[in-house]
Simulated scan of single mutants.
Amino acid sequence: MALDQLDGELEDQEESSEELYEQHSFKIDGGQEPLRIDKFLVARIEYATRNKVQKAIDAGRVLVNGKTTQSNYKIKPADEIIVYSHYEKRGERIEPQPLPLQIEYEDADLLIINKPAGLVVHPGSGNPDGTLVNGVAWYLQQQNPEISEETLPRFGLVHRIDKNTSGLMVMAKTDQAVTSLAKQFFNHTVYRRYIALVWGDPAEDEGTIIAHIGRHKRFRKLYDAYPEGEYGKDAITHYTVLERFGYVALIECRLETGRTHQIRVHMQHIGHPLFNDDFYGGDRIVKGTVYTKYKQFIENCFAICPRHALHAKSLGFLHPTSGQQMRFDSELPADMDQLIEKWRRYVKAKGDLIVESK
């Protein structure tokens, strides 16, 4: 695995995740002769170079026995080495482009951006430019022309959300902030709260879904849940029902892990796919009858929110420099807000009760 790049598209990885960093771990055996750590890592990590390893060490992304180190440190038996590296397509360059950004907060270390639905986070297959990262690259270079992919890997990208998911993202503005945030995402200490409209009426007011997530074994563009843990990566989603509309329900999801399509796959797994999720069966009538008026109502709902109804509402983490607890919240976007109000009116008109969760 490359230290700061992965051969091939991120979307084509067997086990991808929303976090864009991974961890390499090494336990030095008893027969190891003293050897500089940078030389050791170049020999052990595919596509790594001495320069990239040294930059990772300088940025604090290499730990020896839980502490940062220096390039000239000589490893010894029983040392435990952890390397944080980020996925990146080899040879792919990000072209800075002036694009509108909805910046909710900014300081010397980071940006909080409210991403609209429909905007791709980073360049990839079919989306070579016009992405969030292209816009952030332009924005940061207006502040400091010296910023580049060499000085700030991926222009500070440490996590992502799906193209058609709206909501909050954090971007780092310094390599040190990248390191801090990447570690927090990898260690699952970042607070993430999503709001979703799902099909059906969950039996319980709250619950936890524990099932590994990995590529679907037949349809490679999809992901699937593997509750026995025989495939994929561990994934945990907590959910709470906020409002019930009979045929659909408004829920809050809190993530312990950040696997690709995690909420979408987990909710489909328990029989409650996201409303209008065309990947996981939510873009058809899942609950209710198909008589003409109801069918027309659902089609009107799809037109109001022409994407899966999921919004990254809240985001929290420790500030990379001060260590202060940071917490950000966002309003629901207009399409989801209008969709929910339409369901409220529909239920009221039908004479049913909206049951708020306890």
Results as ranks from 00 to 15, higher is better:
residue 339 L to V: 07
residue 136 V to D: 00
residue 107 D to H: 04
residue 106 E to L: 07
residue 304 I to F: 05
residue 174 T to F: 11
residue 283 D to K: 02
residue 269 H to Q: 13
residue 207 G to C: 09
residue 128 P to W: 05
residue 145 P to I: 05
residue 194 Y to D: 07
residue 353 L to Y: 06
residue 334 A to I: 15
residue 183 K to W: 08
residue 48 A to S: 11
residue 78 A to Q: 13
residue 342 K to I: 00
residue 70 Q to L: 10
residue 118 G to T: 00
residue 314 S to Q: 12
residue 5 Q to G: 12
residue 37 I to S: 07
residue 56 A to P: 06
residue 21 Y to N: 10
residue 249 A to L: 02
residue 179 T to C: 13
residue 97 Q to L: 03
residue 80 E to C: 09
residue 77 P to G: 06
residue 200 G to T: 09
residue 313 K to F: 00
residue 265 V to G: 08
residue 290 V to T: 12
residue 35 L to V: 11
residue 193 R to Y: 04
residue 284 R to D: 10
residue 318 L to V: 00
residue 290 V to S: 12
residue 86 H to Y: 14
residue 181 L to R: 03
residue 246 G to E: 06
residue 105 Y to N: 03
residue 61 R to M: 14
residue 15 E to M: 10
residue 275 F to C: 13
residue 155 F to L: 04
residue 352 D to G: 05
residue 39 K to A: 10
residue 208 T to H: 03
residue 200 G to N: 06
residue 196 A to K: 02
residue 218 R to Q: 13
residue 333 P to E: 11
residue 226 Y to L: 03
residue 187 N to K: 15
residue 300 N to P: 01
residue 93 R to M: 14
residue 240 T to E: 11
residue 357 S to T: 10
residue 144 N to K: 01
residue 203 A to G: 05
residue 175 D to S: 14
residue 90 R to E: 15
residue 267 M to L: 15
residue 326 M to Q: 14
residue 223 Y to L: 03
residue 244 R to T: 12
residue 326 M to V: 10
residue 216 H to A: 06
residue 313 K to S: 10
residue 221 K to W: 09
residue 1 M to R: 08
residue 346 Y to M: 08
residue 123 P to V: 02
residue 116 P to N: 04
residue 185 F to R: 09
residue 20 L to S: 01
residue 278 D to E: 10
residue 209 I to W: 09
residue 56 A to R: 11
residue 128 P to G: 01
residue 236 I to E: 10
residue 218 R to Y: 06
residue 267 M to W: 11
residue 276 N to W: 13
residue 290 V to Y: 00
residue 74 K to P: 02
residue 357 S to H: 07
residue 192 R to C: 09
residue 78 A to N: 10
residue 185 F to P: 05
residue 61 R to Y: 08
residue 126 G to L: 09
residue 238 H to I: 04
residue 292 T to Q: 07
residue 346 Y to H: 14
residue 354 I to P: 10
residue 207 G to M: 03
residue 100 P to S: 11
residue 2 A to M: 02
residue 231 Y to R: 11
residue 263 I to Q: 07
residue 54 Q to L: 12
residue 156 G to V: 01
residue 343 W to G: 12
residue 146 E to R: 12
residue 294 Y to F: 15
residue 126 G to Q: 01
residue 349 A to I: 07
residue 138 W to L: 05
residue 111 L to P: 02
residue 298 I to T: 10
residue 295 K to L: 13
residue 308 H to S: 00
residue 235 A to S: 08
